[in-house]
Design a binder for these strands. Structure first.
Length: 102
DNA sequence: CATGAGGCCGCCT
DNA sequence: GAGGCGGCCTCAT
């Protein structure tokens, strides 16, 4: 039994809960997932996204300060723009923030 | 509100 | 087995 996929699956599922045009943070997802599986952290979520994120709306996940991760900022900015999320000075306005169920 | 300095949790050399 | 790093977070200045 590979619990590894279980974690990844949970992360992807959590991200899938974020509606189009909205965004959340890595930490928020990590906390949401961690509550169920009892492990993982923000960075681990990022890791999962880098591997499996291609199949989900990874771009709906930003930093806690609502800025974009520098490594993907360029792509993410374009994707968010498509979702109708305007970046204000490199940061997403908090009106677009989506709180995951705790 | 913008920066800076720890710290946390796993994973990879 | 030890050390270093990451699509980060939080608290303090």
């Amino acid at each position: 039994m590979e619990e590894i996929d279980e974690y990844a699956d949970a992360v992807l599922a959590a991200l899938d809960l974020v509606p189009p045009g909205r965004i959340t943070s890595y930490g928020r997802v990590a906390q949401y997932v961690g509550r169920s599986l009892g492990r993982g952290g923000p960075r681990q979520v990022a890791k999962v996204m880098r591997d499996y994120g291609a199949s989900v709306a990874w771009y709906r996940c930003v930093k806690s300060d609502r800025s974009l991760a520098v490594e993907v900022a360029w792509r993410q900015a374009e994707m968010l723009s498509s979702e109708g999320v305007p970046l204000r000075n490199g940061r997403v306005p908090k009106e677009y923030w989506f709180d995951l169920p705790s």
